[in-house]
């Protein structure tokens, strides 16, 4: 009896450790906020347009897809479709790509300070959000120009974005541990995200109802589809994509559980892996 309860306490220790790490990082938010802003301005220092290059890059991508792919797809308001799709996809792609190298990049900090690991994760989350902010500016302009009507259903999209932001630290954490324990994953993830842009309905749609066509498979069996759709569908069609939403909440919950488990278990070991 006693041994059993002791075991449970031991099993739950990872959760306690992980939450302690996250709590400590949240208390040090001034640090990751300051470092994230430095990161953004460092990346664009000495350029005349600065971080607005992020906006231009985004607009060029949307324009390319609209002009090259914009015909014959049968998607109403293709500009808005691609604008929203790319906004979310670029964010997902960047988070995965930079997340996988996070702990490796922060090696000297991890080996030289006692800052909590979550601090690096939050710093990267902040950085990804700031970068996405510039693309979001472009997206807002494109939505206005393409003639989408503002409606209450946009609140669903706002909730979807909030959910994506909420799951970001968990995703970065998982990828950061993956990159630390499996160095080759950096290249695998890079490849996957590049291919993923075409395998995910960023600029194409699955219009027929059959789930067994090639497109159908990549549409239905791709978790990213649902994260794109919960942002896109309410704005474009005014519907509330309840099923996709439920699925995304479930995925996010699972991601956080996995992230907490990894953080609690590997927090102290990762320093020996770098």
């Amino acid at each position: 009896m006693e041994a059993g309860s002791h075991e449970t306490a031991h099993d739950m220790k990872f959760l306690y450790d992980a939450l302690g790490d996250i709590g400590s990082a949240l208390g040090k938010r001034r640090i990751w906020f300051a470092l994230a802003s430095e990161d953004i301005s460092d990346q664009h220092r000495r350029t005349s347009l600065g971080p607005f290059w992020l906006l231009i890059n985004y607009l060029v991508f949307v324009a390319t897809f609209v002009f090259i792919m914009g015909r014959g797809e049968g998607i109403p308001n293709y500009t808005a479709y691609v604008a929203l799709g790319l906004l979310v996809w670029f964010y997902i792609m960047e988070t995965m790509n930079s997340g996988v190298g996070l702990f490796v990049r922060e090696e000297s900090f991890i080996k030289g300070t006692t800052l909590p690991l979550s601090l690096y994760v939050f710093r990267m989350t902040m950085q990804a959000l700031m970068r996405a902010g510039y693309a979001a500016l472009g997206c807002a302009v494109l939505l206005a120009v393409s003639g989408v009507d503002l409606s209450w259903s946009w609140l669903w999209s706002a909730a979807a974005i909030a959910l994506i932001v909420f799951v970001t630290p968990a995703a970065i954490m998982i990828f950061a541990f993956l990159g630390a324990y499996f160095p080759d994953s950096q290249f695998i993830v890079q490849n996957l995200t590049r291919v993923g842009m075409f395998l995910t309905p960023v600029f194409w749609a699955h219009t027929s109802q059959t789930a067994l066509s090639v497109r159908g498979i990549f549409y239905y069996w791709n978790p990213f589809t649902y994260f794109l759709e919960i942002v896109r569908v309410p704005i474009l069609s005014g519907d509330a994509p309840l099923r996709s939403f439920a699925l995304c909440i479930a995925i996010s919950g699972a991601a956080w559980l996995l992230a907490l488990f990894l953080l609690g278990r590997l927090r102290r070991q990762v320093v020996f892996m770098l």
């Binding site: 640090i31 300051a34 430095e38 301005s41 460092d42 900090f109």
Partner: peptide, 26 residues
């Protein structure tokens, strides 16, 4: 005092670096 050069940023001014270093030190 293990690596006193840790965390200094080349692009930031000396003053800004003092602030950043201070924040990191808590």
């Amino acid at each position: 005092l293990f690596n006193i050069n840790l965390g200094f940023r080349r692009e930031a001014t000396g003053r800004r670096n003092i602030v950043l270093r201070g924040l990191i030190n808590g």
